[in-house]
Amino acid sequence: MRAWRRVVAVARKDLLLEWRGRDALIPAGSFGLAVLLVLGLVSGGGWEAAPPALWVSLLLAAVVAAGRGADREGEEGTLEALLLYPGSREDLFWGRWLAVCVLLLLLGAGLWGVQVLLFNAPTRGVGVLVLAGLLSAFGLAAVGTLLAALLTHVRAGPLLMPLLFLPATVPVLLAGVRLSEAAASGAPAGPWWGVLAVFDLLFLLVGPALFEVVVEA
């Protein structure tokens, strides 16, 4: 099998499992929603509080979604089984990465919609937002996939997830918030596209390299 077909097969398997159980999307989505509600409540719900609330809720939902992936591995040992198949482990990384990307984009789209309703936020600059969402999903998914594999066989792994995930992804959060604000106000985004691109590149290169170290039996 060629590499990209293995990647797609792994992603398809992960998404199929998710579709049958929906045990990452629903908990992560409702958690994100709860965070959004709480942030809206404490910030007074003004439109200027919308971008930070959106990105913080997305980031925390991503922690839950990626942590759920780690749980599934731990319970069912799917990763161990996959490792027995021939071929490069990198394909495994990219397959899971693709699946997490799809999940994150779904979560992001949902949370964005709720945010527009709850915060009375302007819907200007959707194109900018979509691009920012895509780029940040790439980076977040790389970190999430790596950490989920890393924490699979660690006690209290889901609790350690935010401790490692949040500090590592601070730049993505910051860039996302600033890009959203720029999109909403129509101001130039400045260097934030560069920040997002640089950290994406970093995460996408370091992620698979360390993944191979992390999953080896």
Binding site: L150, V154, A156, G157, L160, L163, L164, P167
Partner: peptide, 14 residues
């Protein structure tokens, strides 16, 4: 925080 995480991962691994 990253080094605290590093130490916790070591102690909590199976």
């Amino acid at each position: 925080l990253l080094y605290v995480g590093c130490l916790l991962v070591r102690d909590l691994a199976d």
